[in-house]
């Protein structure tokens, strides 16, 4: 294990959860495929950073970083797909018309609007956290040498990513690079809270709407089905007198 990829205390606490995820075949496949999307999306975001930065050296480094991330995405995708092929799983039903499982790599940042130092600090903190977590995952997939090898390879790249983001941050902000890292950590923490808050709000919202669904909707559902039976099948003439006010949303 790289000395640079230290495991965060929170991840140590969450170790049983990580074990629960990685010990189950379906959850493992799902996780790998989700990582594939996150890494690919992250890669595309870093690519964007390479395209907008005015700094030539950073452009080259971002480009290398993006290529790594996109490659990681491919590795995860190929491994997930290979596992998926080895046995029939209930995961197959997930792909019925839904977009592939996904996420967005650097969703928290609007790349175009971020100065390089903020992006570097964010990337450094994020890469460091990812390296710590991937170290745990690597150790949890001991029974699966190919998946373990992927984590090994990615961890080697993560060291490069952690290093360059930090050294470049020191180059572009020689006086305040440490402060930038702390700021990125605080911002990450806050965004984590916002994600949790949004998650709770989403769960509560779903619950409220589900209750509404069963309490309020039945009479309307009956009316809707009655109206549906009266609807002609085939062409519906478009009335020339239809009230289409240009400013109306209906």
């Amino acid at each position: 294990m790289s000395p640079l990829a230290r495991v965060a205390p929170l991840d140590r606490i969450l170790l049983p959860v990580h074990r629960w995820v990685w010990n189950d075949f379906d959850r493992r496949v799902r996780k790998l495929l989700a990582f594939a999307e996150v890494e690919s999306d992250g890669g595309r975001d870093i690519l964007r950073a390479a395209e907008v930065t005015p700094d030539a050296l950073l452009r080259r480094l971002y480009l290398e970083h993006a290529i790594d991330e996109l490659h990681h995405g491919d590795l995860f995708r190929q491994r997930g797909a290979a596992l998926l092929r080895t046995r029939s799983t209930r995961l197959r039903t997930l792909f019925n018309g839904t977009p592939l499982p996904g996420g967005h790599g650097l969703d928290d940042l609007s790349i175009q609007d971020e100065p390089d130092h903020r992006l570097l600090a964010f990337l450094h903190v994020a890469e460091k956290a990812a390296a710590g977590r991937f170290t745990i995952y690597r150790d949890l997939v001991d029974d699966d040498p190919q998946t373990r090898a992927i984590f090994e390879e990615i961890l080697r790249d993560e060291v490069f990513h952690m290093n360059y983001t930090y050294t470049q941050l020191a180059r572009v902000m020689p006086r305040s690079y440490r402060w930038q890292v702390w700021r990125a950590r605080a911002s990450r923490l806050w965004k984590r809270y916002l994600r949790v808050a949004a998650g709770i709000a989403s769960v509560v919202g779903n619950a409220v709407l589900t209750i509404m669904y069963f309490i309020l909707l039945p009479p309307f559902a009956w009316m809707a089905r009655r109206a549906e039976r009266r609807e002609p099948v085939g062409w519906t003439p478009i009335s020339r007198t239809r009230d289409d006010s240009p400013t109306g949303q209906y």
Binding site: G205, N206, L209, T210, Y213, F214, L217, P218, F220, A221, M223, A224, R225, E228, G248, Q249, Y250
Partner: peptide
């Protein structure tokens, strides 16, 4: 957009109660 909302709501009603998962 309001006409579209009417369609989405009407379809959820027509599919009641199978639409309970997608409704929220």
């Amino acid at each position: 957009s309001m006409l579209k909302f009417e369609r989405i709501l009407t379809c959820a009603l027509r599919a009641f109660p199978r639409s309970w998962r997608s409704f929220p």
